[in-house]
């Protein structure tokens, strides 16, 4: 069973829930105070504006008791996925290295992007090496930065690219270091990503009918 955690201000819990059901993954939405890590094999921190993103995106959620439990799950090798605000919470709480800075244009950006799979050894991207996928982003603070370029190069999972997989500054929507859209820990069980796979999981609402997000989420099935 995968838990989807709802903090006050989380907005994407129902979307992630619907997408996981579509992907055939058993899941449940849990309010952050009610979260019992022993009952789940994995946890998703969905997008939104936890605690209003007051102070700094994700920072208040990062200091909750809930995140201590999530950290324990990560250390136990269980699955921990942060999408958008969830990614921001993961870096704020130190589960992943680096920071998510305000977009270079200093404004919220909602957009469908192409992404290239760099690491095929994570739970979500297994077998998708070098594949180009399409998902939407929607954030104001998604510019990934880390002061260790080697760490970035070896841990990045997805990079913003064009439709042919070329990675260049032109297709970097927010100014991320190395066009990074997603990183994971070395073991590949803790993954943070700015793009929203749950929003690329339904043909009806997809920009071009593709459901690449669903392809990623389906991989949770064997763990859940």
């Amino acid at each position: 069973m995968i838990a989807i955690i709802k903090f006050p201000g989380t907005t994407c819990e129902t979307d992630v829930y619907k997408a996981l059901i579509e992907a055939g993954v058993p899941t449940v939405i849990v309010k952050y105070k009610d979260f019992d890590p022993d009952r789940y094999n994995g946890v998703i921190l969905p997008g939104g504006f936890s605690f209003g993103d007051y102070l700094r995106a994700g920072s208040i959620a990062a200091s909750t008791e809930t995140m201590k439990k999530v950290k324990q799950m990560a250390e136990d090798g269980k699955i921990v996925i942060g999408i958008c605000n969830g990614f921001q919470i993961l870096v704020e709480s130190g589960l992943l290295k680096g920071a998510l800075l305000p977009n270079l244009k200093l404004r919220f950006i909602s957009k469908w992007v192409y992404l290239k799979v760099i690491r095929a050894d994570t739970i979500l991207t297994k077998g998708l090496d070098k594949k180009i996928i399409r998902m939407p982003i929607a954030h104001a603070e998604g510019r990934y930065y880390v002061d260790d370029i080697d760490y970035a190069k070896t841990h990045m999972v997805l990079q913003y690219c064009d439709e042919n997989g070329n990675i260049s500054e032109d297709v970097n929507p927010n100014g991320s270091l190395l066009n990074i859209a997603s990183i994971a820990n070395e073991e590949g069980n803790v993954i943070g990503m700015m793009p929203h796979p749950e929003r690329a999981s339904f043909k009806l609402t997809s920009i071009d009918g593709t459901v690449d997000g669903l392809i990623l989420l389906r991989r949770l099935g064997e763990w859940a």
Binding site: T11, C12, T14, D15, K18, A19, G47, R107, F108, I109, S110, K111, P136, A138, H196, E198, R199, S201, F202, L204, T205, I207
Partner: peptide, 26 residues
């Protein structure tokens, strides 16, 4: 303007801003 709005949240926006004369939601 509309790229600053989270118009995909809810996964129900079928015809998106700028795509047609009307928006469509499921």
């Amino acid at each position: 303007a509309y790229s600053q709005f989270d118009y995909e949240v809810n996964t129900s926006t079928v015809v998106k801003p700028g795509d047609a004369d009307s928006a469509v939601v499921s």
